[in-house]
């Protein structure tokens, strides 16, 4: 695309977008609050407490299991995920 054409295309598209969110002219920040989440699907996190490993002062357990040999198969909520019509896992687990 020729540069000047591109500039016009982009500027036009941006102007349309500004108009479509109902403020052709710049609005002060507080007027934009209602528009903040109209783009992208905002997902709500609940795990604010997971501020990062090591940032809590929870007592450290020293219990562990013998980790030399483990044969666990995924057994959590993955079994309720729908993978292209197949539940949970793509490959059937043996044993």
């Amino acid at each position: 695309m020729i540069r000047s054409t591109l500039a016009l295309t982009l500027a036009g598209s941006l102007a349309t977008a500004f108009a479509s969110v109902a403020f052709a002219a710049p609005l002060p920040a507080e007027k934009m609050v209602g528009n903040e989440k109209c783009y992208g699907i905002a997902l709500k996190g609940k795990n604010d407490c997971a501020a990062g490993a090591g940032t809590t002062c929870a007592g450290t357990s020293t219990m562990d299991y013998q980790g030399n040999a483990w044969k666990a198969v995924p057994a959590g909520t993955c079994t309720s995920m729908n993978v292209n019509g197949h539940m949970g896992m793509l490959t059937p687990k043996k044993g």
């Binding site: 997971a50 990062g52 090591g54 809590t56 198969v73 995924p74 057994a75 959590g76 909520t77």
Partner: peptide, 15 residues
């Protein structure tokens, strides 16, 4: 603590 959902998905033993 960091991979909360990953752990939920595979279960605590697997994780």
């Amino acid at each position: 603590q960091r991979f909360v959902v990953t752990e939920q998905l595979v279960g605590t033993d697997f994780f």
